[in-house]
């Protein structure tokens, strides 16, 4: 950052601006080579440097660098939008087709106890009714039936923990190979 002083600024006035800059926590050095002296700000806060503009001898503040990391905005590509829209429409069309061709059904309501048919009433059992499990949990009875539910729960918890720890385990494995 460079602080430009007005034309004809005297050395004692430059020294005064330097003192003021120092007081505000800025490190500067004076460069007097042309009719307008300038102060090169070596370190310090831009917000604080702007306050020097209030001084009578200071004319302008010139930024010499931008942010260290420039974040580039995301560009919009029409063909991406078209692709995304087509994919979304295809997905929705498939769902509508499935809904029409294979509508989900509803069975009979479980028998309610006499006098308890009002909303919120308790429901009597549905003994003997077939248990229809969705495909994603259809394998559960098999696993539960083969061993104790406790062992199955432990197995699932262990599998979940293993999957969660996979990145860490993999990193250690790679480090181990690298060190060998």
């Amino acid at each position: 950052m460079i602080i430009v002083l007005k034309r004809g600024t005297e050395p004692d006035q430059i020294a005064e601006v330097l003192r003021e800059a120092q007081r505000r926590g800025l490190q500067c050095r004076a460069l007097v080579a042309a009719d307008k002296p300038v102060l090169h700000v070596l370190s310090g806060n831009t917000r604080r440097a702007r306050k020097l503009l209030k001084l009578e001898r200071v004319q302008a503040l010139v930024a010499t660098s931008g942010p260290r990391v420039r974040v580039e905005g995301r560009r919009f590509f029409p063909y991406h939008f078209l692709n995304w829209s087509s994919a979304a429409l295809m997905l929705i069309a498939t769902l509508v087709l499935l809904a029409g061709q294979f509508p989900p059904g509803v069975g009979e309501a479980p028998g309610t106890l006499a006098g308890q048919a009002a909303p919120g009433a308790d429901v009597a059992g549905s003994a003997g009714a077939p248990i229809v499990l969705p495909w994603y949990v259809a394998w559960l009875p098999g696993i539960l039936g083969s061993g104790s539910p406790g062992a199955a729960a432990l197995l699932f918890a262990g599998l979940l923990l293993l999957l969660l720890a996979l990145p860490t385990l993999d990193r250690r494995l790679i480090r181990g190979k690298g060190g060998a």
Partner: peptide
């Protein structure tokens, strides 16, 4: 949530 006979039996089991 459809709470038919099958769903009820499934919840119990």
């Amino acid at each position: 949530l459809k709470w038919d006979v099958g769903a009820h039996a499934t919840v119990v089991a």
